[in-house]
Amino acid sequence: MNFPLEPQGAFSLTTGLLMAFIVGIGFGYFLEKAGFGSARKLTAQFYLKDFAVLKVMFTAVVVAGLGFWGLVSLGMLDLSFTFINLTFIWPQIVGGLLLGLGFTIGGYCPGTSCVALSTGKIDAVWYILGILFGIFIYSEMEPIMNSFSNAGAMGETFVWQWLGVSPGVVLLAAVLMAIGAFSLGTVLERQKNGVVQPEGAETE
């Protein structure tokens, strides 16, 4: 099979949207299973009590990263049909920082706020209204943000290109970094007895 399927015309637009919905179900399902429908669980990461955000995110990045670059190296996934996030280094650093602040202040990110909404969190309604308001402000301010939002443009640049090594080396480094951070996180979680579970949850 030649991946990715849709950009190479494997199916129609309607089928593609149906596929998107199915992939989304998987996305939402695992976010909720991880406990990411709870702002208390998510923010406990930044009090060093519950490392679920780091553990789930880095596990997902490493698993998908190994699969992605594995398929590329086997010639089964064509990069020229794949969207790669373009690098605009300054807006990404400043935006990332502001997003992190907004995460601890508001309790969610856009994806997790959807899962919070569908599991009944009323605070998620206010959060989502905030997202829409923030998008509105940015879109109205775009003419004056435009030059900064394009600062540090480097196009399609991979970490491994930038370091001058192969993708495998970067993935190995990511795995080692993940194992180190996970072990440290587990020690802190145990010390503080900090892992957040739903209120009144049954114990296993």
């Binding site: 308001f133 402000i137 940015y138």
Partner: peptide, 12 residues
């Protein structure tokens, strides 16, 4: 927090 997130996600 949502407002900051919406703004920042557009910027980034």
């Amino acid at each position: 927090g949502g407002t900051m997130m919406g703004f920042a996600a557009r910027l980034a």
